[in-house]
Nucleic acid binder design. Sequence first.
DNA 1: ACCACATGTCATTCT
DNA 2: TGAGAATGACATGTG
Length: 645
Amino acid sequence: MLKAKKYLKEGLIQLTILLSLIGVRVDLDSYLSGYYSPLIEINLGPSSAYTQTPFHNLRETLDGYSVHPKCPELDHFFASRRLLEEVRTLGSPRFHTSLNAWLVHQVSPTDKTGSGPSSNSSSSSSNIGNGPALQGSEDDREHLPDADQATPEAEHGPCSTGACAFPKEENDVQIKEEEEPAPVTQLAHSSTLEQESLLGGVTSLSDSESHHPPTFDFDQHWNNLLSLSVTDLDGLDSLVEDNDITTAISQDVSLHDAMLTTAGSFGVTSGQGGARHNTQERNLLSLESCSSSHSDVSPGMALGLAALPFASVCNLPGDEPPHNVLSDCLDEAVFDQINQLGLEGLDNMDMQLINHLENVTPQVLEDLDSDSGLSLESSSGGPVSPGVSDMSSSSSSSSSYYEDEGGATGYSSDADALPLKGIADYTSEWSPLDHSESMWHDHSYSSHTFFNQPSVTLLHKGIKEEALSDIEESGLHGQQMSRDELRAQAMYIPFSVLQIVNMPVEEFLEILDGHGFSAEQVTLLRDIRRRGKNKLAAQNCRKRKLDAITGLQEEVERLQAQRNKMMREKQLTAKTMCAVGHQIKQLTRDILARMRDDSGQPLNPERVTLQCGANGRVVVQPLRRPSVSTSSGNKTDKRKKEKKQ
DNA sequence: ACCACATGTCATTCT
DNA sequence: TGAGAATGACATGTG
């Protein structure tokens, strides 16, 4: 019954489309709002049609669910999605691809045998080689009672009808991913062909008997469009695990449920459940670890958003339940559409995605989080190392050694990865560790080689201040170590400068109080920390200053360009006005030359002129002599001046 | 030697 | 009230 209802709606939609092609608008909102709600009209002129909620409308919904308003990735994501939708509608003005999402249910599970409907690569063939695309829909509409029988037939693959010219579609999803860089051009191409085929379909509706069995040309056509939608929804399609089309249709599983049930097990085929699920959850831990405050984002969601342009996951509010963050904000209709996508090769795609995520290094994730261009805080290990988590977790402070706020916000090094207990467990070892990418830009005081050493043995207590001065004066160590490093060594402070600077203030205060440091050592520790913080602050400040200068320069250029443009427009307008004035004058002369006064003499253009009134009437008016008027005016002015005097 | 630039440091103010 | 961020000014090293 549900299938029949769907096919009835399909027929209605297709009828609506047909009617829209001839300029008749049909409001299916009330009809379909229960299933495809809400419907949104896209006014595309004479062929406007009602369509289902476009995905980009989720932006507002997401706003309602407190998605971080400053998330640039999200902005980019929705902006690009909106643009893509606009391009799609431009290229295919008669349909909105979202409308066709549920038609993909006719994709057969037996498509693995090579007869399945192509979601993307078959677009050209189906558009070119096959006749009117609407023919299939017409047949579909005529065979609505046979919809249940038609579905299994469709499951045997549309290529059985001869409509598919690309029989090998086992990895259509992968192909989709590979061809993703050129969706717009492909879309434009397919859209043009689509229009042609649609027009052909309109003209050939009457002779439907001579055409192929139902739906497949049309379905492939829809699938072509849908494949783009699916490409757009690549962050979601991995959440659909059911390949069985009939199951997808009959069970009516919402994506909401799919997200919850397949969270972390995206793409896992039924029956494999457990272990793989855990494995993928583990895989996602690295993704989640990019921000500890977001650790409660569900793996499924994380993966789904990982497909977004570098995952706005990290900016999602961590205190939001996962389904509240995404699934609640997704339209129910979108869920239905996506749920019903019988996507072949989804497992393959998911595994690729998983592998891709596994290959994402913490450094990459850190780069995604950090918007700073400074190299000082980018370490080889990155802040997303487990050590950081350990440290921050072991720390009683809420802050971390690495403050991920963008810019030069912290001394970043592998020393940060040391658990604090390990730091506290000092005896005679320094542990600056690998600072190959550390913040030490001070070419005057330090060099990277010092930090490349895995560990530097602390100078033992026998070394005196003189030794320090000797070291400082000596070329080698004096060049390799910063002043504060030397001072710290000289004062037997068992912490590296990085540790001193980056540790939370609570830890720092505990160390100052609890380790029996002398007053000089405490002062030095405070100075080292202050200088280190200030060094970073200075670097940030300079970066901001440069950015501000750059921004101002760009604005100056923009304003100059705008000024030049306006100047050109002004000149052009002046020229136009001059030409128009000249034309008017010439026309006036012509007209006056053909007119006669009461005595039958032609009007003198020197004495009269034509005036166009506000009501459109043109009258002849005597022309004032400017010399007379000005002279009289001057006389009156002179009189006024005399009166005043 | 001079200059431009990068970077560190200090002092100060503000949050 | 202290920590830290921000920033101007100065010092220093480098090319």
